[in-house]
Design a protein around this nucleic acid. Structure first.
Lengths: 127, 127
DNA sequence: TCTAGTGGGTTACGATAGGTAATAATGGAG
DNA sequence: CTCCATTATTACCTATCGTAACCCACTAGA
């Protein structure tokens, strides 16, 4: 017997979809985390995230800016300095980043042992 | 004086990075949501998610299975039926999906141009 | 003047991931 | 022996990404 489990989650939602495809683009998750941690300059971001090239960083920052998640400000020092900051909309992605971080730490590497997983080894269900 | 803002978040974490790149791959977020909502069959998933082709669905499911997020089980009815279910590890992604969903609903579409960062808190979202 | 350094990118080009459409494997039904 | 349903896979082509080199504006030396 199953209880009347109310399906509170719809199987598909266009807003969710748009959001998850935006922040799920390659490197975007890492960029957002670094910015939430306070990194704000172009070269600092590029150095913080291993493997992230200027090309990709530039492209992702433009996307995030276009979505209102990030603002770009030019500071007329010399040499010129550019800072990227999260908008309020961007800051509120903190909960998402934290949720992913918690999941990632909880399930880090340990391969399948220790806790009782309902059925995580595909050894007996192959076709 | 909020000077004592402790940086509790490191700018980069390899576990986080791996996780966000996994669940951020194209369509993966949508697939996970649908599965959390109870959709478990191949064609149901394909129908639930607009634009998702069998090729991509197959590929993503294999990745998620390889990561221990999803299990595949073959049910020998006729025609054969295949069900995909979330493991405990997969179920625990619910918090991530919910966080994204809340963010997406809160910040759905509003004009949001310019640099008006301190703007409107959308008063009500859906049920 | 020429060269080097700082900061923030852009361009060119090959490699890989993804979109699209057609088709396969399986087994029962007609 | 052909049809249908279900779960995929293959072939082909385009879009996105990775890599490396380069550009621009400015300053400080030599």
């Amino acid at each position: 017997m199953e209880m009347m489990k109310t399906e509170e989650l719809e199987p598909f939602c266009p807003y969710y979809h748009r959001a998850v495809e935006l922040i799920g683009r390659r490197w975007s998750g890492a960029i957002l985390r670094a910015m939430l941690a306070g990194v704000s300059r172009f070269n600092e971001l590029a150095e913080t995230i291993p493997g992230l090239s200027p090309r990709m960083l530039s492209e992702r920052l433009k996307e995030l800016e276009a979505e209102g998640v990030v603002v770009r400000s030019v500071i007329p020092t010399v040499p010129v300095r550019v800072e990227y900051h999260l908008t309020e909309k961007g800051q509120s992605l903190g909960s998402v980043v934290e949720a992913v971080a918690r999941w990632a730490e909880q399930w880090a590497d340990p391969p399948a042992e220790g806790t009782a997983v309902s059925a995580s080894t595909p050894s007996e269900v192959e076709s």
